[in-house]
Structure formats: structure tokens, C-alpha cells
Design a protein around this nucleic acid. Structure first.
Lengths: 335, 335
DNA sequence: TGCCATAATATTAACGTTAATGTTAAATCC
DNA sequence: GGATTTAACATTAACGTTAATATTATGGCA
């Protein structure tokens, strides 16, 4: 069915090896021979069998991407950046999702290793029994994207989330807010930890007491923001500012605020995180911490590629700068 | 570095083949032997080399997914459905994006075939010189997801877009709208064609004249909806209803309407397409045609798997039902 | 002229696995 | 008790490619 080197060899009269070398443009094949063989390959529609090639060369030109949830717009964007960069360098990506389960994560790593990926891009779960130890023992290059794992910080490519989270909350505190709701993300995600730490440290820096009940852990979904804020309002809990784990949660929160008649930003200011594409087109354009998602993906791939090509090189943590974008859900607004 | 069957054989005293058969639970290996070999494999951390296995068996348990833009929330959702279903069946996906370029599409197909994928899931570009002919000549199973290509309709798994588009526009017409803007998608995408056809046929069925200048082709992005509607309003073009190619365009359009002070839905009704996750949480929850995106992905994979396992089976077009969800951007609203 | 370098090709082996055969000894049968 | 089956393993070959190592003819040079 498929055309093989063997057929090209038979049809051209050359040996399999010469055909192989001709197609790979090696310089001990004469130009005329190359031309003949190439024409024949094109004519018969020869496609190199990468599986055989990979077995022989020990390279698959494939990397594994282990994401938590590729349907989340943030990850979708990052993955797009990864895929673009990978394709530009002749690599392909094997994509798999863990839904924040350490078990699935371990399983995914193992399967991808079996598939002989040249490297791994991970968005790992941060938990008591996380896969840090297992990951540390890997002997393929790997980069942790947009997250971190204790002891493996040097493998991370991420943004300056802690700093920006703190800045956001300091902005609120400076403006006199005392009841700042933090709709936190899942505690098993390092981003949640960093953003929450930013919240806490801002309060500390302002010498303000934290109201623990204003820190609510969510799964980072639209409905979480909606339900949590609705519940708070039902219970007549006063809040005047919301720092959301991400824009999805923020959008849900905004909806709940609207339904309750609370005016944004006058009565409640809201700032999200990630700055998703749609955020600036919302009815009230959403103030958010803008992370260059595609850049993050691209940088992660390039960094991984560096380590694939140069396995001895030491890892160093890389950071891409994010910035707070003040839009219509805050009193302060950019021009 | 990596542990091979060879090592397990040497360490256990059995032959490579027996080790292989033991690990694959073949029944001409004694239970005790299996137990011993499995314990050894676990102890040494043996991972089966899928590349070698694939070369030998002719199966990779991998499918290629060729999407236009995996960062588009619609595709991201569909791809998530695909990936989940694939993983559940022991398959993995190689994801690549074409950005609606026929050339990249062809390139992607060829590379993935070289990687010996067991099947292909395509979201192909519909153009004068599309890859229909090339695709038709493939000898791996393939399914076209959410789109169609002329002559290959039987390979499609999609939703009933034409019918729903028509229904949307008929709803507008029935309510007395005469100036219904259609923010169409790219003409090289079959969905755009179907949705536009629905628009036209609704007008025809209502015996109303179409105003061609109210059909505006876009790329289906947020900013397109925003800019096109802003421009129309600047030019004082009267519109009282908008049928958007997708929810992204609709969100952009809503933003433009809000900026111009036009009231939705009183002065302008808006209906989108796809029903993205966030649509129902928007300030004005968006009326839209709800496509079960994950289901679409799941069904596409399952259908592909059927054809992988049963290559002789004839292809038949499959459809998942979508439904119009009336929310706050239309006068009619569901309870 | 004879020797050596070189260009161009061929031959052989290897990647790690699984499938197809072989082998051996114990168990079964009449 | 000898032939036959069967359980449990081993040996060999193969998947399609590339790398390492021959081989052959040609030309240059002393």
C-alpha cells in the first residue's frame, strides 16, 4: 500500500541506502542521482515512515504537552503558542489532559515517555502527593509551563503572578477598600497559591487585618464566580472589591453583581487575571492582569528545545512580564 | 539508560520473547512466570517503547487532529471532547493547526501520515482549490469534524447548522425585522456557507428582499464584530437585528452596540452561534445556537475509531442536534 | 606504470519490539 | 509403553529506516 524506500530502490535501480541518502540530501550521492530519485519519490508519493526513522535515530521530533484542561481559554491560548513554535521548528505535539488529577498526570507522563517524546511540557498539579519526585527522575528534558513545583523551580517558565496579584490588592487597599473578596483558584494549582499569597502579602504590607471568610476557594470556572458571589450577596455580606483568580471567575462574578443590582465599578470594583481575548470586549470591559499567553507558550517550547538540543545545559527559571490592564470594572481606567 | 525487554530478560533468565509475552498477558506463559516478570518490570521501571511496538505492529494508537485554530474556544472545546474520548480508548492525539491555509493543511496531513497515525480528524478549509481530492485519496480512515467538503459529505460529523441559522433568521423576520445584519464567517469555512445559506433561505421563505450590504464577511473574531458594527453605526446604517456567525463576533458586536448607546434587545436583537461557555454569564446573556461541542468531538472520535477497527465499513454523515437558546439579547426569552 | 585518494555506490547491522516457528519435557491416551 | 498432545518456553525473522562499513571504478600523481 504505502510506498517504501524499497520500492524506490527497486524502481530506480539504486540500493535502499542510496535512496535514503539521496532523499536526505547527503553529499555522497551525485546530483543527478538525487534528482532522479527525488522525482521518482514525488511521482510515487513516497512518505517517510517516521516511526521507523524514530526507532533508528532515537528521535521522534515530538513533544508531550500535559495540560490540566485544554478547553480552558488560558491553556488553549498557551497551547496554541506552543504548537505554533513547535511546528515552526519541525516538532509536533502530543496533547493530553489531566483535569488536575495527579494520577492521570503520572499516567500521561509514563505513556508519553513510552512514545519516546523528545521532551515534555507540563502544567502539573501541586498537591501533598504531587509528582515532583517522579518528574525529577525523568531523563527527558522537561519544562513546567505557567506553574511551578517545589524543588523544580528552575524548570519553570511562567509569569510574575505573585507580584501582580499583590499589586492588584494593594490598588484596592490604597483606594480604601476593606472588604476585598478573593475568589481563589484551586489550592492544587501553583497559580492559585501565588495569587493568594499576593493577596495576603498586600494586606500585610498595608497593615490591614485579613478576613478569612473573604477568601473563597473555587475551581476557577465561570459558574464558581457566579455562585459564590450570588451566595455572598444573598447573605448580605458586604463586599466592595473582587480580586478573581481568573477572568472566567470574574465574568461569573460580574454577572452575579449585575443580577443583584450592584453597580460596577462604583459599588464594587473587579479585577480578573489572565486577560482573555474576550475580556476587553465585555459589556463592562474587564480589568485584568494581562499575561502574554502565546508568548508564554512559545518561550516554553523554545526553552524546551534548547534543552533537547543541549541536554547538559543547566535549567534556569524564566519569567515573562504581565501587566495590569485597568478597564471599566475599576475606577482607575487607562486612557 | 532506559530499561528494555533485553534487560528484563537478562535479569530474569527468560528470553526476550517470554518477557514480552508475559507483560502482554499472553496465555502461554505460566502465571508464576508472569508474576515474577511483572514484579521485575515494575521494580526496574520498564516502559514499553511504543515506537518499536508501532513499527512492528503497524499501529500507533495515535490519531492526527488538524484544526484551523485550536485557541478558538469552539475548537478548544471540540478538541477537548476528542481528547477525552481518545484517552478513554487508549489513543493519543497529535494536534496541529492550519490557520485556514490549504497549504498548511496539506503539509499537516502528509506529516501526520508519515507519523503513521491510525486515523485523521479534520477541520478542513473549503476553497476553490481545497484538499478534497488529496483527502479522498488517503488510505487511513478520516472524519471531517463540524465541517464538510463537497463529495466527502459522508465523512462528516457535524451539527444541523443550516436549519438553525434559517430558524434564527425566520425568528427575526417573524418579529418584523427588515434590517437583519449577518456578520458572516470566512467564506472558506463550510459553517459560514451553511449559516449564510440559512440566512438567505429564510429571507426567501419569507418573501423578503435581501439587502446584500447587510451581509458582511468577517474572520469570525471578536474584533470583527466590534469593528463592523461600529462602522455601520458610524455610517448611520439602520439595523434592528444581528445574526452573528459565532459568539465571538456577537460579543464584539454587543460591545459596539453598547458604546453607541443602542439598547439590546429592545432596539437591536442579537443571536450568536456556538453557545460558548461564557455566553450565558455575560452582562446580557447571549442568545445563541447551542452546539454540544464536547459531544461533537466525542462522536467524531468514536466514529473514527469505528472506521479504524472496521476499515471496510461505509461512511455515513452523522449529525448532532443543536438548539437555539433564547436569552437576554432577544425579546423572546426562555424561562 | 603502479599506487593512492576519492567519488559514488552497495552491503550489513542495528534500533526494540512482536509474530511466527521451534524445541523440550511432562502429561495424556489407548 | 510408545505415540501424541500440550504447556512453557526459546529462537528466528521481520517492521522501515539510518549508520557504519565495505566495494568499485575513476582520476591524479610521482
Amino acid at each position: 500500500m504505502a510506498v517504501l524506500l524499497k520500492q524506490l530502490a527497486a524502481a530506480s535501480g539504486y540500493s535502499i541506502n542510496t535512496v535514503s541518502r539521496a532523499l536526505r540530501d547527503k553529499d555522497d550521492v551525485s546530483p543527478e542521482t538525487k534528482k532522479k530519485i527525488r522525482a521518482l519519490a514525488a511521482e510515487l508519493g513516497y512518505v517517510n515512515n517516521s516511526v521507523a526513522k524514530s526507532l533508528r535515530t532515537g528521535k521522534t521530533n515530538t513533544i508531550g504537552v500535559i495540560s490540566a484542561d485544554s478547553s480552558n481559554p488560558f491553556f488553549a491560548e498557551v497551547i496554541m503558542g506552543i504548537e505554533n513554535a513547535a511546528r515552526a521548528s519541525g516538532y509536533h505535539i502530543l496533547l493530553t489532559n489531566t483535569e488536575e488529577s495527579t494520577e492521570r498526570e503520572r499516567e500521561a507522563i509514563s505513556v508519553l515517555l513510552g512514545k519516546q517524546v523528545d521532551g515534555l511540557l507540563l502544567m502539573p498539579v501541586l498537591q501533598q502527593h504531587n509528582n515532583g519526585h517522579y518528574i525529577k527522575s525523568l531523563d527527558v528534558p522537561y519544562i513546567i509551563v505557567g506553574r511551578w513545583l517545589p524543588g523544580l523551580e528552575d524548570h519553570s517558565v511562567m509569569s510574575d503572578e505573585y507580584e501582580k496579584a499583590k499589586e492588584v490588592v494593594l490598588y484596592f487597599l490604597k483606594n480604601g477598600h476593606t472588604d476585598i473578596l478573593h475568589l481563589a483558584g484551586p489550592s492544587c494549582v501553583s497559580s492559585s497559591v501565588d495569587r493568594l499569597r499576593g493577596y495576603r502579602d498586600a494586606y500585610a504590607e498595608a497593615h490591614m487585618p485579613i478576613q478569612e471568610e473573604l477568601i473563597i476557594e473555587t475551581k476557577g470556572h465561570l459558574e464558581d464566580g457566579y455562585h459564590e458571589v450570588s451566595a455572598l450577596i444573598r447573605n448580605e455580606r458586604k463586599i466592595s472589591a473582587i480580586f478573581a483568580f481568573n477572568d472566567l471567575v470574574a465574568v461569573g462574578a460580574l454577572r452575579a453583581l449585575k443580577e443583584s443590582g450592584l453597580k460596577v465599578p462604583k459599588e464594587v470594583e473587579v479585577i480578573g487575571f489572565d486577560d482573555l481575548n474576550f475580556s476587553k470586549y465585555l459589556h463592562l470591559s474587564l480589568s485584568s492582569v494581562s499575561i502574554p499567553k502565546k508568548t508564554l507558550g512559545t518561550l516554553a517550547f523554545k526553552t524546551l528545545l534548547d534543552h533537547i538540543e543541549n541536554p547538559e545545559a543547566p535549567y534556569t527559571k524564566k519569567t515573562v512580564a504581565s501587566r495590569i490592564v485597568f478597564r471599566e470594572t475599576t475606577l482607575e481606567q487607562e486612557p
